[in-house]
C-alpha cells in the first residue's frame, strides 16, 4: 500500500508544532497502524531524519499507552486502540492525518506523545478503596450479587487511554472518571468512601482543566473498551448524593 501521511511534528512542549507530509510505500495490509509508523520511522532513520515519536507499549490493546487521532477520530475509524487498528481498514492511496490527543490538561511532550499524568492525579485524589495490606477479611465474607459484579466489571475495563478526552468536544474526562466511580461504587467494598471519592475525583478533574461534560456521547463512541455513557450519569447521581462535595 502507498499512503500520504500528514503528521503533527513538535520538538518539545515549548515550541510550536506543524503538520508535515510524508509519503510512504510498501505498507502491508496485515500490519498494524503502529507498525506502519515503525516502517515510516525506519525509512526516516535511513534518510537521517529524526523518527516520529509516538507512545505504545503492550501493542495488544490493553495497556492504554498508545493513541493518536487519525483523520479526526481518536484511535481511528474502528472501535479499538491504535495499536490494534490494522492497515486493512485503509485503502491504497489514502491520505491520513495523524494528530496527538488534543486537550490542555494533556500537553504535548513531543510529536504524537502527550502527558496524561492528570489521569493519575484524578485516581490519586480518590479513585481507590482504602484497604491496607494484610487487613482484608476472607474474600467470601461479602458476596457480590452478579449484576453488581458485572456492572463493576464493565466499568473496570477502562484502560485509561484518554481517547474519551481526545474525542470530547469539551475536552472532558468524564467517561474515564465515571468509569472508575461506577466500578468502585457498584461494589460493597466501595461504599464507605463513595461520597468522598466522587467529590474528590470530580474536584481534581476540574482543577486539572478538563472541560465539563455536556452529554455529547462522542467519548463512548471513541472508547476502545465501549465504556457506556451511563457511567457519567452514575457519577452525576453520586455527586448529587454527596452534596456536590460541599
Amino acid at each position: 500500500m502507498k499512503l500520504a501521511l500528514s503528521i503533527w511534528r513538535q520538538d518539545n512542549p515549548k515550541v510550536p508544532g506543524r503538520m508535515v507530509r510524508y509519503d510512504i510505500d510498501g505498507v502491508s495490509e496485515d500490519s498494524s497502524f503502529l507498525e506502519m509508523l515503525d516502517l515510516l520511522n525506519e525509512q526516516l532513520t535511513e534518510k537521517g531524519e529524526e523518527p516520529v515519536a509516538f507512545d505504545s507499549d503492550c501493542r495488544e490493546g490493553i495497556c492504554g499507552t498508545c493513541g493518536v487521532v487519525i483523520n479526526g477520530e481518536a484511535h481511528g475509524p474502528e472501535r479499538t486502540t491504535t495499536c490494534q487498528l490494522h492497515m486493512r481498514s485503509f485503502k491504497d492511496g489514502d491520505e491520513i492525518v495523524i494528530e496527538p490527543w488534543r486537550a490542555d490538561p494533556f500537553p504535548v511532550i513531543k510529536d504524537l506523545v502527550v502527558d496524561r499524568s492528570a489521569f493519575d492525579r484524578i485516581i490519586a485524589a480518590g479513585g481507590f478503596i482504602s484497604a491496607n495490606t494484610g487487613s482484608a477479611p476472607d474474600a467470601h465474607a461479602t458476596p457480590v450479587p452478579k449484576e453488581h459484579a458485572d456492572r463493576a466489571f464493565m466499568a473496570a475495563e477502562c484502560i485509561g487511554c484518554g481517547a474519551c478526552v481526545a474525542a470530547c468536544p469539551n475536552g472532558s474526562g468524564s467517561l474515564f472518571m465515571g468509569a472508575k466511580i461506577t466500578h468502585l461504587g457498584e461494589l460493597p467494598q466501595g461504599q464507605p468512601e463513595r461520597d468522598a471519592r466522587v467529590a474528590a475525583m470530580t474536584h481534581q478533574h476540574d482543577a486539572e482543566g478538563f472541560g465539563g461534560c455536556t452529554n455529547l456521547g462522542e467519548c463512548t463512541r471513541a472508547c476502545p473498551k465501549g465504556i457506556p455513557l451511563n457511567v457519567i450519569s452514575q457519577m452525576n447521581a453520586d455527586l448529587r448524593h454527596a452534596g456536590y462535595g460541599r
Partner: peptide, 26 residues
Amino acid sequence: ALWRRARGARSVRYVKKRAGYGNFYA
C-alpha cells in the same frame, strides 16, 4: 461558563475534524 471551560480545555484545535454529533450539539 461551561462553554468557556470547554474552550480552555482545548486551546489547540484539531486540523482535521470528524463530522459528528458534537457539531450538531454546538
